[in-house]
């Protein structure tokens, strides 16, 4: 019932793949703008990941439902408009219930529209698979995205302020590395973490 092609991954496999083996942040290097921009605090990063996850799930399910009607040359436009609709919903929701967070994230919530992860998943998975498979794929990918964002955010917030969620982790004498919460810190942290991930997953080292 799920899919007709014999060697395509099942729903569970796709779910697992999204989290680590095909992590959108570290393995596919997709959606880098929010990865670098909103990771100066864990709270902002988690809100961003939740908003992206919501949009990804809805867009994947919607694309999967209409996949029989898609015309090849118009599909990207259809994907983008679908995504834009759900982003508008997410944006209004955040503005209504989490106003401070919505102010902090600012233009990066509407920028979810052009987040490559979502278009990539619509194109690669949802436009070919059934609803159930693409929904589990979306959940897996958004968990992987949340993992990527929060790993960077934890490093930056601890080194930059010595605190996480207002809990002090490092001693008060810790000189805050202000550079870590400024734009350059995002590049450094992500570059170094990416190198660490590359080192750990290097082929031939088992």
């Amino acid at each position: 019932m799920t899919d007709n092609s014999s060697n395509a991954p099942t729903a569970m496999e796709r779910f697992i793949q999204g989290i680590l083996p095909e992590n959108p942040t570290y393995r596919q290097l997709l959606g880098l703008c929010p990865t670098l921009a909103v990771t100066n605090g864990l709270k902002a990063a988690l809100t961003m990941a939740a908003a992206t996850g919501f949009v990804l799930l809805c867009a994947n399910v919607m694309t999967s439902l209409i996949r029989g009607l898609l015309k090849p040359h118009l599909r990207i436009v259809v994907f983008t408009l679908t995504i834009a609709t759900f982003v508008t919903i997410a944006d209004r929701f955040l503005a209504a219930y989490l106003y401070d967070m919505s102010k902090t994230l600012g233009p990066y919530i509407p920028l979810i529209i052009v987040n490559c992860i979502i278009i990539c998943r619509c194109e690669v998975c949802a436009s070919k698979q059934s609803v159930w498979v693409s929904a589990s794929d979306a959940v897996g990918q958004s968990l992987g995205f949340a993992l990527g964002l929060s790993s960077i955010a934890i490093v930056r917030e601890i080194l930059g302020t010595g605190m996480i969620f207002q809990f002090r982790i490092l001693p008060v004498q810790w000189p805050d590395w202000v550079i870590m919460v400024l734009p350059p810190g995002a590049f450094f942290t992500f570059g170094l973490l990416l190198a660490v991930v590359n080192r750990l997953t290097e082929p031939g080292k088992k």
């Binding site: 570059g191 170094l192 990416l194 190198a195 590359n198």
Partner: peptide, 12 residues
């Protein structure tokens, strides 16, 4: 260094 090749060194 090998782990840094590609995107990592670009980010740094």
């Amino acid at each position: 260094p090998k782990p840094f090749r590609g995107a990592a060194i670009t980010l740094i």
